[in-house]
C-alpha cells in the first residue's frame, strides 16, 4: 500500500478525471471540471480615504455597537488617557471582579517591549509595568496575574469595526493581548481603512506574521442566543483612537 500522501493525491486526480491515477475509494473516476474565470467585481476599496472623518466615525459606531470602549484622543493626551484607564483598574468600581483582587500595591500592566515608552509616561508611580518579548516571554500563568495590557495595532477596518494586530514588537506576542482581562489598544487614525480588502492587501505584505483580528470583546450566544460579552479573551476592550500623529 502506498503512503497516504501519494494515495490521497492520486484519489484527487482520479476524482478530477486525470487518467492513470486509479480511482476514488468508491471506485469512481470523475470528470475534469471547467471552472468559470473568477470575477472580481466586489469593492477593492471603500469610497472614503484611510483616516478620513467618515471612516473614523464609522469605526467608532461599530466599536460602540460591539461594546468596546472608545476614547478619541490627541497624541499629546494619549499618555494621560492611558494613565487614567490604568488607575481605574485599581479601584473597586469595575463590574467584573478581577481574577487577582489583592493587587492593592499598584496595578500590574504588561506591555510588548517595542511599545512607545512615551505612551506610558504619565502612569502613576507604583504602577508595575512588565515587559514581554519573544526573547523574554512571560509564562501564561504570569500573564494571568496582570490586570491589563497596552498594545499598538497594525490596521483597522471601519465597516466591520475590526482591529488587526500582527505581532510586531509594538503589538506583542499573541498571548500578551489575550490572557489579561483588560486590553488597551492604541490605533492611529491614519491606520483606519474602510474595507476588508484594503486591510487584507496591507497585511498581505507580511502574510507570515501571526494575525489577530479583533472585533469587539469576545462574546457567546450559545445559551438561548442570549449574548454574553467577555468570555475568554480580555473582557474589556478599550480602543484609544489617536489623531494627529
Amino acid at each position: 500500500m502506498s503512503d497516504a500522501r501519494t494515495e490521497v493525491l492520486a484519489r484527487v486526480r482520479a476524482a478530477l478525471g486525470q487518467t492513470g491515477s486509479g480511482t476514488t475509494p468508491s471506485g469512481k473516476v470523475g470528470t475534469a471540471p471547467h471552472p468559470e474565470p473568477v470575477p472580481r467585481a466586489y469593492r477593492a476599496a471603500g469610497e472614503h480615504a484611510a483616516g478620513s472623518a467618515e471612516v473614523i466615525e464609522q469605526l467608532v459606531d461599530r466599536l460602540v455597537d460591539y461594546k468596546a470602549l472608545v476614547h478619541q484622543v490627541t497624541v499629546d493626551a494619549l499618555p494621560a488617557t492611558i494613565a487614567t484607564l490604568v488607575t481605574e483598574l485599581s479601584g473597586p468600581a469595575r463590574g467584573v471582579p478581577s481574577a487577582h483582587p489583592d493587587s492593592s500595591a499598584g496595578v500590574r500592566v504588561v506591555v510588548p517591549d517595542g511599545l512607545d515608552d512615551g505612551w506610558l509616561a504619565a502612569l502613576p508611580a507604583g504602577t508595575d509595568v512588565v515587559r514581554d518579548s519573544r526573547e523574554r516571554p512571560l509564562p501564561p500563568s504570569e500573564l494571568d496575574a496582570v490586570a491589563a495590557v497596552v498594545t499598538a495595532a497594525r490596521v483597522a477596518v471601519s465597516e466591520t469595526g475590526t482591529i488587526v494586530l500582527d505581532g510586531e514588537p509594538d503589538q506583542g506576542r499573541r498571548a500578551v493581548s489575550l490572557v489579561p482581562d483588560v486590553h488597551l489598544c492604541v490605533v492611529r487614525t491614519d491606520q483606519v481603512v474602510q474595507t476588508v480588502p484594503e486591510a487584507v492587501r496591507l497585511l498581505g505584505a507580511h502574510p507570515e506574521r501571526p494575525l489577530t483580528w479583533i472585533s469587539g470583546p469576545s462574546a457567546t450566544s450559545d445559551i438561548e442566543l442570549d449574548r454574553v460579552e467577555g468570555v475568554h479573551g480580555p473582557r474589556t476592550l478599550h480602543v484609544l483612537l489617536v489623531a494627529g500623529v
Partner: peptide
Amino acid sequence: RMNPYTSLWT
C-alpha cells in the same frame, strides 16, 4: 459584520 476574533498563522 465581523466575528469577535479571527486568528491567522503560518
